[in-house]
Simulated assay, not measured.
Amino acid sequence: MHPLDRGVMTLAAVAPEVASADIADWPLGRRNQALLETHIVTFGPQLQGWSVCSECDEKMEFEIDARVLLSEQQSVRTGRISFRDRVFRLPTSRDLAALQTEDDPNDAALALVQRCLSEGESVEQWRVEDTEPLGEAMAQADPMAEVRISFVCPKCENHSEETIDLVNFLWSEIEARAKRALWEVHAIASAYGWSEGEILSLSATRRANYMEMVHA
């Protein structure tokens, strides 16, 4: 699945009362807030990862508290901004999905602007340079749309900034939890002959206790 689809599917699973189509139309900041909240509730607040210095290739590990990100960068909920006497929607997952076939980043930027413009209007005369101030205005209106962190390389002291892919952070945790559950089902079923349903009906604590007995 594409990361955009993974993000929508995950949020639809934790909020079944909201239609997937509606989640796809959330501003990106609202989506990212929901992804962080899901991570905090399900796996805890710590986001751990690593990056590579662009100057010397030094591996840099980092750990961020998702609660701090939420408190520092609250996203707006209006979903629209005014710019140059026109009204624009804030970009959504659906908008980004529609741009996946665009190979040229300049064409993609102009296509995104057109998608976010109010119906009945056009940006045919816009240049790529015209999209930059609009992008800045959108970023100010929806600061959680792109979560960036700063790095200082401990080896060469190079300063850099990178975007955190919140979908991949959450999906990695889900994938690891799923693999662990699969292994637990296999190990306990092999030892006790129970069915998958019986094993998964156990609490996580009881499954852990049975796993300890299996390995004893």
Rank of each mutant, 00 (worst) to 15 (best):
F88A: 12
F83Y: 13
P16D: 04
A216L: 13
A66E: 04
P45M: 09
V8D: 03
P16Y: 03
I199H: 09
V8M: 07
G79M: 02
A15V: 03
L4H: 06
F151G: 06
V167R: 10
W194Q: 11
I23C: 01
S20T: 09
W50V: 11
C116M: 05
L200I: 13
G79W: 01
A204W: 00
L170Q: 05
Q114R: 13
E55C: 01
A15C: 08
V128T: 06
R30C: 06
R67V: 05
M9H: 08
H215N: 11
R148A: 15
L4N: 02
N168F: 01
L99R: 07
V113W: 00
D25P: 00
Q48I: 15
L4C: 01
R94I: 02
P3Y: 09
C116K: 04
N32G: 01
A109S: 12
E61R: 07
S201D: 14
E129K: 12
I164T: 09
K59S: 08
D165T: 03
E102R: 06
L182W: 07
C156G: 04
E212T: 15
P154K: 08
W194P: 06
R30T: 07
W183A: 15
V87D: 10
S51T: 15
W126L: 04
S160A: 13
W183Q: 15
I164W: 05
